[in-house]
Amino acid sequence: GPMASDKRPRTAFTAEQLQRLKAEFQTNRYLTEQRRQSLAQELGLNESQIKIWFQNKRAK
């Protein structure tokens, strides 16, 4: 629909990254900035991508 703007492409996470994020989520529903930074480095992701993933996951 018209609401779907092309400005922010959805990140396609790899299965491996998703597995890691899910495991982290089961341990911590809320990430500290430090955890998020190390996860971002570990997974080669953007911190904001991880932050948003957690927000979306909590919203469900």
Rank of each mutant, 00 (worst) to 15 (best):
K7Q: 14
L43P: 00
S5K: 05
K22G: 07
K51R: 11
P2H: 15
Q37K: 14
P9G: 06
A23V: 09
L31Y: 01
T11Q: 11
L43H: 01
N28E: 04
K57T: 10
L45S: 03
L39Q: 00
A12E: 12
T32C: 06
Q26M: 11
Q34S: 13
A15G: 06
I52E: 13
R29H: 08
A4M: 06
I52H: 11
R8W: 15
Q55L: 09
E24P: 00
L31Q: 03
Y30A: 05
P2G: 15
A4Y: 14
T32D: 11
Q37V: 09
P2W: 02
E47G: 06
S48L: 12
R8E: 15
F13T: 02
K51H: 12
Q55C: 10
S48C: 14
L45D: 00
R29W: 07
K60F: 04
D6N: 05
K57V: 07
R20V: 07
N46W: 06
M3E: 15
Q34Y: 11
K51I: 13
D6H: 03
T27H: 10
G1D: 15
E16Y: 13
Y30N: 08
A12V: 13
R35A: 08
T27R: 14
K57I: 06
A23F: 08
Q41Y: 10
R35G: 06
A23Q: 13
A15R: 10
N46I: 07
I52V: 09
S48P: 04
Q55G: 05
G44K: 10
R58V: 07
E33V: 14
Q34I: 10
R20P: 00
M3H: 15
K22D: 08
T14P: 02
F54M: 03
A59F: 08
L21P: 00
M3V: 15
R8V: 15
F54C: 01
R29V: 05
E24N: 02
N28F: 03
E47V: 10
S48A: 10
Q34C: 07
F25S: 02
A40N: 01
A4D: 15
P9F: 05
Q37N: 07
K7E: 15
T32K: 04
R29D: 06
L18S: 05
R10S: 15
A40V: 04
L21M: 04
E16D: 09
Y30E: 07
R29N: 14
A59H: 12
E42D: 06
G44M: 06
A12R: 14
I52W: 13
A12L: 13
R29A: 08
E42K: 03
F13H: 02
I52S: 09
K60G: 08
M3L: 13
F13M: 07
F54H: 01
Q49M: 10
S48T: 12
Q37L: 11
E16N: 08
T32R: 03
Q49G: 03
R29C: 08
Q17R: 02
A40Q: 03
K22W: 12
A40H: 02
Y30F: 09
L18K: 07
G1C: 07
R36N: 07
T11E: 12
Q17T: 05
W53T: 00
A40T: 03
Q55S: 11
T32V: 03
K51C: 12
A59K: 15
I50H: 00
A4S: 05
Q19V: 11
P9Y: 05
R58G: 05
L43V: 04
Q37P: 01
F25Y: 08
N56Y: 15
R35V: 06
E47T: 09
F13C: 03
L31P: 13
Q19C: 08
D6I: 04
L31M: 06
E42V: 05
Q41F: 09
W53S: 00
A40F: 02
M3D: 15
T14L: 03
G44Q: 07
N28S: 10
L39S: 00
E24I: 05
E47D: 05
F25T: 01
G1H: 04
G1A: 04
N46H: 10
R29S: 06
F25M: 02
F25W: 06
T14R: 04
T32P: 07
F13N: 01
E16G: 07
Q34V: 11
T27S: 13
A15Y: 10
T32I: 03
K22N: 11
N28D: 08
K51W: 14
E24Q: 02
L43G: 00
T27M: 14
G44N: 11
A23G: 05
N56A: 12
M3T: 15
E16C: 08
R20H: 04
A12P: 14
S38A: 14
T27Y: 08
G44Y: 04
R8C: 15
L18M: 07
L31H: 02
F13W: 08
P2T: 05
R10W: 14
K51M: 12
K7R: 07
Q49H: 07
T11G: 12
P2A: 15
F54D: 01
Q49E: 08
I52P: 01
A4V: 08
R29Y: 04
L18C: 07
E42H: 03
F25H: 02
Q55T: 09
R20K: 08
L18D: 04
L21V: 01
K57L: 06
K60R: 09
Q17A: 05
F25D: 00
Q37S: 10
